[in-house]
Design a protein around this nucleic acid. Structure first.
Lengths: 246, 246
DNA sequence: ACGGCAGTTCGGCCGGCGCCGAACCGACCG
DNA sequence: CGGTCGGTTCGGCGCCGGCCGAACTGCCGT
């Protein structure tokens, strides 16, 4: 317990973990750049994280790709971030175009967070498709039908595994969006359908025109797809530490 | 995020937090003793933990009683412990009478863990009273009736709050027991009925004869109440660091 | 064979923080 | 009023660990 918390309790390592919480695999050099440390230092940090099984690594060519080791680790990091966000509320929060993009829509390990994630969750709750509370979530019969039509694969593999919906507290809005198997499937399907596209080098998601229409039709969610018209949306040259956000 | 993890990532502070995860309030001196540090050092640690809102303090007479600040913090600590227990499995585990008592039944912040907690969870699952999975839990109609008869107050205060059952991975057995509102209510009612009694200075719970009968009758759980006949069950004089267990 | 690039290992620097003893504060008691 | 006891503040010590540059390995493409 101490060891795990101590590993997360270092700025450089926490920054790397936060970056990996985007759900994508990243190389050591990329992580070193994001954490503003040299490659040797990053290598040492990553070695420790791998040794503790917080992240996993797979080699392709001469690259080594790192990723969060398991959903359990992702849940833990979410949980730590939640406590950090709730318990230290009034902190100064500089706004930037980069942050605005993240606030609008981003991946949270394997599901969608930000205003888009909240809008989807709100719509599903309002339509009686799911129920979300502090300690868990549930998919109703109506929800099963709607999500099946949407194309999410919610097949309860084992008979006892009927539960797969989990609330995840959004750091920027302090409200719940959908995590767990249901959240992951919604995210997967949205990317598959091209409703969102991943931004390069960040966890932000961009809503496409198809996504705007699809979300409206399928979930009754009305979101503006704003990315293209806004000249400020180009990411800044990473002059400050990458936001360690979930 | 970094700050919170760093606070937990110190042995002395983690030991204190683990002790407070028993659900009871403790004084600074008690915590200093448990963590094997001097009172000044403990005072400093506790000041930081209070400042970060991980623990709360209330003064009575000239004493200051510390406790976990919120269920959110408790959940986070559980989560960290789960990752630590799962990802570093083969570690040497010395057996002792003290540990055996904890393994049998203990409080985990506000609910029951250990073999007793697992037995209750297993029985409720087997009877179709609840469903437990990796990402959440659910109380069935049968479960609501049984728990109501038992005396648990599961009143869904707000209409949207139908969900209140959460799985908690047991560190010693690697299986789920019941946390969340349902788990807290079961624990509260068991103590209220005198089925379990709290041990002094530890998180262990002792099963009473009434508890043995009641658990059998109410949940169909067969547990031996072994505390009184066993001469080794008296807690050792705390010669080693208190187990940082959840 | 050579150069380039990702990643690692090594040695050494240095700052932060955990720790304690001693002293101090405030509440309670006779 | 002194005595005791829980708690905190202060000053100083010591060490762990994060950091980097330089050098080394190993995998590629040419």
């Amino acid at each position: 317990m101490v060891e795990v918390a101590a590993l997360v309790g270092d700025t450089a390592r926490a920054t790397m973990l936060a970056a990996l919480m985007g759900g994508q695999s990243l190389t050591g050099s990329e992580l070193a750049f994001l954490a503003h440390i040299s490659r040797p230092t990053a290598s040492e940090h990553l070695r420790k994280l791998v040794e503790a099984r917080l992240i996993a690594v797979s080699s392709k060519r001469s690259f080594r790709y790192y990723r969060i080791a398991s959903p359990l680790v992702a849940t833990m990091l979410e949980s730590i971030k939640t406590v950090a966000a709730i318990e230290l509320p009034p902190r100064y929060r500089p706004r930037s175009a980069r942050d605005d993009a993240l606030r609008f829509a981003r991946t949270c390990y394997d599901h969608i967070a930000g205003q888009a994630g909240l809008a989807i969750a709100d719509a599903l709750v309002a339509n009686g498709c799911i129920v979300l509370g502090d300690d868990g979530g549930e998919v109703t019969e109506a929800g099963v039908r709607l999500l099946a039509g949407f194309g999410a694969e919610l097949a309860p593999k084992s008979a006892s595994r009927r539960i797969y919906c989990r609330p995840c507290l959004d750091w920027s809005e302090r409200r719940y969006h959908i995590a767990g198997l249901v959240g992951a499937e919604i995210c997967r399907r949205c990317l598959e359908l091209g409703w969102f596209t991943r931004e390069r080098e960040t966890r932000a998601l961009r809503l496409t025109a198809a996504g705007q229409a699809g979300l409206s039709q399928t979930f009754g969610v009305e979101l503006r797809c704003e990315g293209e018209a806004d000249p400020k949306s180009r990411p800044a040259p990473c002059a400050t530490r990458a936001p360690t956000s979930g």
